[in-house]
Protein backbone atom coordinates (compact mmCIF):
# COMPACT_ATOMS: atom_id res chain seq x y z
CA UNK A 1 0.00 0.00 0.00
CA UNK A 2 1.25 3.47 -0.92
CA UNK A 3 1.50 6.31 1.57
CA UNK A 4 -1.67 8.33 1.08
CA UNK A 5 -1.20 10.81 3.92
CA UNK A 6 -0.90 14.47 3.04
CA UNK A 7 -0.04 17.61 4.99
CA UNK A 8 -1.66 20.89 4.19
CA UNK A 9 0.51 22.91 6.53
CA UNK A 10 -0.87 22.24 10.01
CA UNK A 11 -3.76 20.23 8.59
CA UNK A 12 -2.83 16.54 8.27
CA UNK A 13 -5.15 14.22 6.36
CA UNK A 14 -4.99 10.41 6.21
CA UNK A 15 -5.59 10.63 2.47
CA UNK A 16 -6.19 13.44 -0.03
CA UNK A 17 -9.84 12.61 -0.76
CA UNK A 18 -12.41 14.88 0.87
CA UNK A 19 -16.04 15.57 0.02
CA UNK A 20 -17.09 19.01 -1.20
CA UNK A 21 -19.25 21.37 0.77
CA UNK A 22 -22.96 21.26 0.05
CA UNK A 23 -22.89 17.93 -1.68
CA UNK A 24 -22.61 15.72 1.40
CA UNK A 25 -24.92 17.40 3.92
CA UNK A 26 -23.50 16.86 7.40
CA UNK A 27 -22.53 13.30 6.55
CA UNK A 28 -25.58 11.44 7.88
CA UNK A 29 -27.07 10.50 4.52
CA UNK A 30 -23.87 8.91 3.26
CA UNK A 31 -22.84 7.20 6.50
CA UNK A 32 -25.08 4.25 5.63
CA UNK A 33 -22.90 3.62 2.55
CA UNK A 34 -19.48 3.66 4.22
CA UNK A 35 -17.66 4.85 7.31
CA UNK A 36 -16.92 8.57 7.10
CA UNK A 37 -13.61 7.89 8.81
CA UNK A 38 -12.36 6.39 5.53
CA UNK A 39 -12.22 9.84 3.96
CA UNK A 40 -9.43 12.38 4.24
CA UNK A 41 -12.05 14.77 5.57
CA UNK A 42 -15.73 15.62 5.42
CA UNK A 43 -16.31 19.23 4.44
CA UNK A 44 -19.73 20.18 5.72
CA UNK A 45 -22.50 22.09 3.98
CA UNK A 46 -22.26 25.83 4.58
CA UNK A 47 -23.01 26.83 8.16
CA UNK A 48 -24.39 30.33 8.70
CA UNK A 49 -25.10 32.33 11.84
CA UNK A 50 -28.87 31.93 11.55
CA UNK A 51 -30.93 29.14 10.00
CA UNK A 52 -31.49 29.62 6.25
CA UNK A 53 -34.40 28.14 4.26
CA UNK A 54 -32.59 28.53 0.95
CA UNK A 55 -33.88 29.56 -2.45
CA UNK A 56 -37.19 29.08 -4.16
CA UNK A 57 -37.58 25.75 -6.04
CA UNK A 58 -36.79 24.46 -8.59
CA UNK A 59 -33.17 24.40 -7.47
CA UNK A 60 -31.62 21.94 -9.91
CA UNK A 61 -31.24 21.78 -13.65
CA UNK A 62 -29.12 19.21 -15.39
CA UNK A 63 -26.91 20.50 -18.21
CA UNK A 64 -24.44 18.64 -20.47
CA UNK A 65 -22.15 16.67 -18.11
CA UNK A 66 -23.02 19.01 -15.28
CA UNK A 67 -25.69 20.48 -13.06
CA UNK A 68 -26.82 23.95 -12.18
CA UNK A 69 -27.88 24.44 -8.59
CA UNK A 70 -29.37 27.29 -6.64
CA UNK A 71 -29.77 25.73 -3.20
CA UNK A 72 -29.05 29.02 -1.44
CA UNK A 73 -27.11 27.59 1.50
CA UNK A 74 -30.12 26.00 3.20
CA UNK A 75 -28.84 25.02 6.66
CA UNK A 76 -30.07 24.92 10.25
CA UNK A 77 -27.67 27.57 11.59
CA UNK A 78 -24.53 27.39 13.71
CA UNK A 79 -26.21 26.58 17.06
CA UNK A 80 -28.07 23.61 15.62
CA UNK A 81 -24.86 22.53 13.90
CA UNK A 82 -22.98 22.55 17.21
CA UNK A 83 -25.70 20.69 19.06
CA UNK A 84 -26.69 18.04 16.51
CA UNK A 85 -24.39 17.81 13.54
CA UNK A 86 -20.88 18.28 14.89
CA UNK A 87 -21.35 15.66 17.64
CA UNK A 88 -22.70 13.26 15.02
CA UNK A 89 -19.71 13.80 12.75
CA UNK A 90 -17.31 13.35 15.64
CA UNK A 91 -18.93 10.07 16.64
CA UNK A 92 -18.60 8.91 13.03
CA UNK A 93 -14.83 9.25 13.26
CA UNK A 94 -14.68 11.79 10.43
CA UNK A 95 -12.06 14.52 10.17
CA UNK A 96 -14.35 17.54 10.12
CA UNK A 97 -13.83 20.69 8.08
CA UNK A 98 -16.62 23.22 8.54
CA UNK A 99 -17.62 25.41 5.60
CA UNK A 100 -18.90 28.82 6.70
CA UNK A 101 -20.77 31.59 4.89
CA UNK A 102 -22.37 34.92 5.66
CA UNK A 103 -24.03 38.02 4.26
CA UNK A 104 -21.72 40.50 5.97
CA UNK A 105 -18.14 40.46 7.25
CA UNK A 106 -19.57 40.52 10.78
CA UNK A 107 -21.62 37.37 10.13
CA UNK A 108 -18.61 35.43 8.90
CA UNK A 109 -16.68 36.53 11.94
CA UNK A 110 -19.48 35.65 14.35
CA UNK A 111 -19.85 32.10 12.96
CA UNK A 112 -16.08 31.56 13.08
CA UNK A 113 -15.92 32.86 16.64
CA UNK A 114 -18.73 30.55 17.75
CA UNK A 115 -17.03 27.56 16.08
CA UNK A 116 -13.70 28.44 17.71
CA UNK A 117 -15.32 27.61 21.07
CA UNK A 118 -16.04 24.04 19.94
CA UNK A 119 -13.74 21.02 20.06
CA UNK A 120 -13.05 18.68 17.21
CA UNK A 121 -13.06 20.91 14.15
CA UNK A 122 -9.95 20.25 12.03
CA UNK A 123 -10.26 23.40 9.92
CA UNK A 124 -12.63 26.07 8.67
CA UNK A 125 -13.30 26.59 4.98
CA UNK A 126 -14.58 30.08 4.23
CA UNK A 127 -17.00 30.24 1.31
CA UNK A 128 -16.50 33.73 -0.08
CA UNK A 129 -18.83 33.19 -3.07
CA UNK A 130 -21.63 35.04 -1.29
CA UNK A 131 -23.09 38.47 -1.98
CA UNK A 132 -22.21 41.19 0.52
CA UNK A 133 -25.63 42.59 1.39
CA UNK A 134 -24.14 45.66 2.99
CA UNK A 135 -22.18 46.62 -0.09
CA UNK A 136 -24.57 46.37 -2.99
CA UNK A 137 -24.58 42.59 -3.21
CA UNK A 138 -21.12 42.31 -4.77
CA UNK A 139 -19.74 38.83 -4.19
CA UNK A 140 -17.00 38.89 -1.53
CA UNK A 141 -14.90 36.50 -3.55
CA UNK A 142 -14.79 38.58 -6.71
CA UNK A 143 -13.36 41.72 -5.17
CA UNK A 144 -9.83 41.37 -3.73
CA UNK A 145 -10.30 43.91 -0.94
CA UNK A 146 -13.59 42.45 0.25
CA UNK A 147 -12.11 38.95 0.08
CA UNK A 148 -9.23 40.17 2.22
CA UNK A 149 -11.52 41.75 4.78
CA UNK A 150 -13.52 38.55 5.25
CA UNK A 151 -10.36 36.48 5.49
CA UNK A 152 -8.68 38.82 7.96
CA UNK A 153 -11.67 39.06 10.26
CA UNK A 154 -12.13 35.28 10.39
CA UNK A 155 -8.37 34.95 10.94
CA UNK A 156 -8.63 37.12 14.03
CA UNK A 157 -11.08 34.82 15.79
CA UNK A 158 -10.21 31.36 14.40
CA UNK A 159 -6.88 30.00 15.64
CA UNK A 160 -6.94 26.70 13.71
CA UNK A 161 -6.12 25.91 10.08
CA UNK A 162 -7.89 28.37 7.79
CA UNK A 163 -8.98 27.47 4.27
CA UNK A 164 -10.39 30.12 1.96
CA UNK A 165 -12.50 28.78 -0.91
CA UNK A 166 -12.09 30.80 -4.08
CA UNK A 167 -14.79 31.71 -6.54
CA UNK A 168 -14.00 31.00 -10.20
CA UNK A 169 -16.21 33.89 -11.31
CA UNK A 170 -13.28 36.29 -11.61
CA UNK A 171 -10.98 37.52 -14.34
CA UNK A 172 -7.73 36.76 -12.55
CA UNK A 173 -7.88 33.95 -10.00
CA UNK A 174 -4.20 34.39 -9.08
CA UNK A 175 -4.89 37.95 -7.97
CA UNK A 176 -7.60 36.78 -5.57
CA UNK A 177 -5.40 33.94 -4.35
CA UNK A 178 -2.57 36.33 -3.46
CA UNK A 179 -4.98 38.71 -1.78
CA UNK A 180 -6.47 36.15 0.62
CA UNK A 181 -3.10 34.57 1.40
CA UNK A 182 -1.83 38.01 2.36
CA UNK A 183 -4.84 38.35 4.66
CA UNK A 184 -4.11 35.10 6.50
CA UNK A 185 -5.43 32.16 4.45
CA UNK A 186 -3.24 29.11 5.10
CA UNK A 187 -4.84 26.83 2.52
CA UNK A 188 -6.85 27.62 -0.61
CA UNK A 189 -9.65 25.50 -1.98
CA UNK A 190 -10.99 25.88 -5.51
CA UNK A 191 -13.13 26.00 -7.46
CA UNK A 192 -16.58 26.84 -6.26
CA UNK A 193 -19.35 26.61 -8.86
CA UNK A 194 -19.29 28.72 -12.03
CA UNK A 195 -22.28 31.03 -12.38
CA UNK A 196 -24.62 29.81 -15.08
CA UNK A 197 -28.17 29.82 -16.36
CA UNK A 198 -30.51 27.57 -18.31
CA UNK A 199 -33.81 28.43 -20.02
CA UNK A 200 -36.64 26.08 -20.97
CA UNK A 201 -37.26 26.62 -24.70
CA UNK A 202 -40.90 25.53 -24.39
CA UNK A 203 -42.03 27.62 -21.44
CA UNK A 204 -39.52 30.46 -22.03
CA UNK A 205 -38.84 30.40 -18.30
CA UNK A 206 -35.50 30.06 -16.51
CA UNK A 207 -35.11 26.48 -15.31
CA UNK A 208 -34.11 27.60 -11.80
CA UNK A 209 -36.44 29.38 -9.42
CA UNK A 210 -33.52 31.67 -8.63
CA UNK A 211 -32.93 32.32 -12.38
CA UNK A 212 -29.14 31.88 -12.09
CA UNK A 213 -27.22 29.14 -10.33
CA UNK A 214 -23.83 27.48 -9.96
CA UNK A 215 -22.49 25.00 -12.50
CA UNK A 216 -20.66 21.90 -11.24
CA UNK A 217 -19.69 18.46 -12.46
CA UNK A 218 -17.40 17.17 -15.24
CA UNK A 219 -18.38 20.12 -17.46
CA UNK A 220 -16.27 22.47 -15.29
CA UNK A 221 -13.24 20.26 -14.73
CA UNK A 222 -10.91 21.82 -17.34
CA UNK A 223 -11.60 25.27 -15.92
CA UNK A 224 -10.93 24.00 -12.40
CA UNK A 225 -7.67 22.25 -13.35
CA UNK A 226 -6.44 25.40 -15.10
CA UNK A 227 -7.26 27.55 -12.09
CA UNK A 228 -5.60 25.16 -9.62
CA UNK A 229 -2.50 25.17 -11.80
CA UNK A 230 -2.46 28.98 -12.04
CA UNK A 231 -2.95 29.43 -8.31
CA UNK A 232 -0.22 26.88 -7.59
CA UNK A 233 2.16 29.10 -9.57
CA UNK A 234 1.00 32.25 -7.82
CA UNK A 235 1.15 31.34 -4.12
CA UNK A 236 3.05 29.06 -1.78
CA UNK A 237 0.17 27.65 0.27
CA UNK A 238 -1.34 24.18 -0.16
CA UNK A 239 -4.40 23.78 -2.37
CA UNK A 240 -7.52 21.62 -2.19
CA UNK A 241 -8.63 21.16 -5.80
CA UNK A 242 -12.15 20.39 -6.96
CA UNK A 243 -14.55 20.66 -9.85
CA UNK A 244 -15.95 17.70 -11.74
CA UNK A 245 -14.11 14.82 -10.12
CA UNK A 246 -15.83 11.55 -11.05
CA UNK A 247 -12.88 9.16 -11.51
CA UNK A 248 -9.38 8.51 -10.17
CA UNK A 249 -7.83 10.03 -13.30
CA UNK A 250 -9.48 13.31 -12.34
CA UNK A 251 -7.93 13.14 -8.87
CA UNK A 252 -4.52 12.57 -10.42
CA UNK A 253 -5.03 15.50 -12.79
CA UNK A 254 -5.72 17.90 -9.90
CA UNK A 255 -2.72 16.62 -7.94
CA UNK A 256 -0.44 17.03 -10.96
CA UNK A 257 -1.75 20.56 -11.43
CA UNK A 258 -0.62 21.40 -7.90
CA UNK A 259 -3.37 20.40 -5.47
CA UNK A 260 -2.34 18.59 -2.28
CA UNK A 261 -5.86 17.26 -1.66
CA UNK A 262 -9.12 17.19 -3.60
CA UNK A 263 -12.85 17.39 -2.95
CA UNK A 264 -15.49 15.25 -4.61
CA UNK A 265 -18.80 17.09 -5.03
CA UNK A 266 -21.36 16.42 -7.72
CA UNK A 267 -19.84 12.97 -8.29
CA UNK A 268 -21.33 11.84 -4.97
CA UNK A 269 -24.80 12.28 -6.44
CA UNK A 270 -24.11 9.83 -9.19
CA UNK A 271 -22.34 7.24 -7.10
CA UNK A 272 -22.78 7.57 -3.33
CA UNK A 273 -19.68 5.49 -2.66
CA UNK A 274 -17.50 7.46 -5.10
CA UNK A 275 -15.31 9.35 -2.63
CA UNK A 276 -14.57 6.23 -0.61
CA UNK A 277 -13.90 4.23 -3.79
CA UNK A 278 -11.44 6.87 -4.99
CA UNK A 279 -9.26 6.35 -1.91
CA UNK A 280 -8.65 2.74 -2.93
CA UNK A 281 -8.33 3.59 -6.61
CA UNK A 282 -5.73 6.26 -5.90
CA UNK A 283 -3.71 3.70 -3.97
CA UNK A 284 -3.95 1.33 -6.96
CA UNK A 285 -2.95 4.10 -9.35
CA UNK A 286 0.17 4.83 -7.31
CA UNK A 287 1.09 1.17 -7.13
CA UNK A 288 0.64 0.55 -10.86
CA UNK A 289 2.72 3.63 -11.60
CA UNK A 290 5.44 2.47 -9.20
CA UNK A 291 4.98 5.39 -6.88
CA UNK A 292 5.07 5.10 -3.11
CA UNK A 293 3.52 8.38 -1.96
CA UNK A 294 0.89 10.84 -3.13
CA UNK A 295 3.53 13.49 -2.69
CA UNK A 296 5.24 12.24 -5.85
CA UNK A 297 2.28 13.47 -7.93
CA UNK A 298 1.70 16.88 -6.42
CA UNK A 299 2.55 19.78 -8.71
CA UNK A 300 4.41 17.65 -11.24
CA UNK A 301 3.05 19.73 -14.08
CA UNK A 302 5.33 22.68 -13.64
CA UNK A 303 5.37 26.25 -14.74
CA UNK A 304 5.77 25.69 -18.47
CA UNK A 305 7.69 28.92 -18.88
CA UNK A 306 5.76 31.63 -20.67
CA UNK A 307 4.19 29.28 -23.20
CA UNK A 308 0.75 29.61 -21.65
CA UNK A 309 0.69 33.37 -21.92
CA UNK A 310 0.29 33.26 -25.70
CA UNK A 311 -2.95 33.39 -27.67
CA UNK A 312 -4.77 30.09 -28.06
Amino acid sequence: MADLTVSLGRLKLKNPITVASGTFGFGREYASYYSLSELGAVITSAVTLEKRVGNKPPRLAETPAGILNSIGLENPGVEHFLQEDLPYLQRSGATVIVNIAGRTVEEYRAVAERLSQAEGIAALEVNISCPNVKEGGITFGTEPQMAQRVTASVREVWPGPLIVKLSPNVTDIALLARAVVEAGAEILSLINTITGMAIDPETWQPKLGNIVGGLSGPAIKPVAVRMVWQVAQAVDVPIIGMGGIVAVEDVVEFLLAGATAVSVGTGNFRQPTLARDLVGELDEYLTTHQLTTVQQLIGQVGKGGDRWRTCV
Partner: peptide, 10 residues
Protein backbone atom coordinates in the same frame (compact mmCIF):
# COMPACT_ATOMS: atom_id res chain seq x y z
CA UNK B 1 -29.56 15.09 -7.60
CA UNK B 2 -28.49 12.89 -4.66
CA UNK B 3 -31.87 11.28 -3.98
CA UNK B 4 -30.80 10.54 -0.40
CA UNK B 5 -31.41 13.84 1.40
CA UNK B 6 -27.94 15.37 1.30
CA UNK B 7 -28.09 18.19 -1.25
CA UNK B 8 -31.42 19.99 -0.63
CA UNK B 9 -31.86 20.20 -4.39
CA UNK B 10 -35.33 18.66 -4.46
Amino acid sequence: ACGVGACFGC
